[in-house]
């Protein structure tokens, strides 16, 4: 069955069982592997994308439910690593293995969009992704830095 998806501003029709999680449609059907599989039960956040601007764990969204909504993935965060978060992420040597970081960045980007000047408590509440390498202190510092950059 065809499902119409609008991903990073591009409309495409995918022939897929409509109950397939958006995560796997992105990864296997469309080859957009920046969005990661970590747990499959909305615990870890590695699969975070934006759906109509809201950070969403794509492993729990059937493709059908995302049809005709605005989906943004890590590949759509910027054209050339020029999103403020991507810049501070590189400068701050934030990532270690990097596997969770697309989800982390997407959660942080959604937070900054809604709340350009988040407190530590805001970050704690909105960026609940799991990172096994322990990059949290640098993630927090980078979000604050990006917020400051946007204000300057």
């Amino acid at each position: 069955m065809a499902v119409d998806l609008n991903i990073n501003g591009k409309r495409q029709s995918v022939d897929v069982d409509p109950s397939t999680p958006l995560l796997w449609v992105l990864r296997d059907n469309l080859g957009m592997t920046g969005t990661k599989y970590g747990c499959g039960i909305a615990q870890c956040g590695a699969c975070t994308v934006h759906i109509d601007g809201v950070a969403t764990r794509s492993c729990q969204v059937p493709a059908q439910a995302a049809a005709n909504k605005q989906i943004t993935t890590i590949e759509g965060l910027s054209k050339d690593n020029n999103h403020p978060l991507q810049k501070v992420w590189i400068e701050g040597n934030v990532a270690q293995c990097g596997y969770c970081q697309s989800g982390m960045l997407m959660a942080a980007a959604a937070l900054l969009k809604k709340n350009p000047n988040p407190t530590d408590a805001d970050i704690d509440a909105q960026v609940s992704n799991i990172c096994r390498c322990g990059t949290y202190p640098r993630v927090r510092a980078a979000i604050h830095k990006a917020a400051k950059m946007a204000k300057a």
């Binding site: 957009m32 592997t33 920046g34 969005t35 993935t73 890590i74 590949e75 965060l77 910027s78 690593n81 978060l85 991507q86 992420w89 590189i90 400068e91 701050g92 040597n93 934030v94 990532a95 990097g98 970081q101 697309s102 960045l105």
Partner: peptide, 12 residues
């Protein structure tokens, strides 16, 4: 910083 950072931040 680690060489691979730009590849991590854009998902490539």
């Amino acid at each position: 910083v680690k060489l691979q950072l730009p590849l991590i931040t854009n998902g490539s």
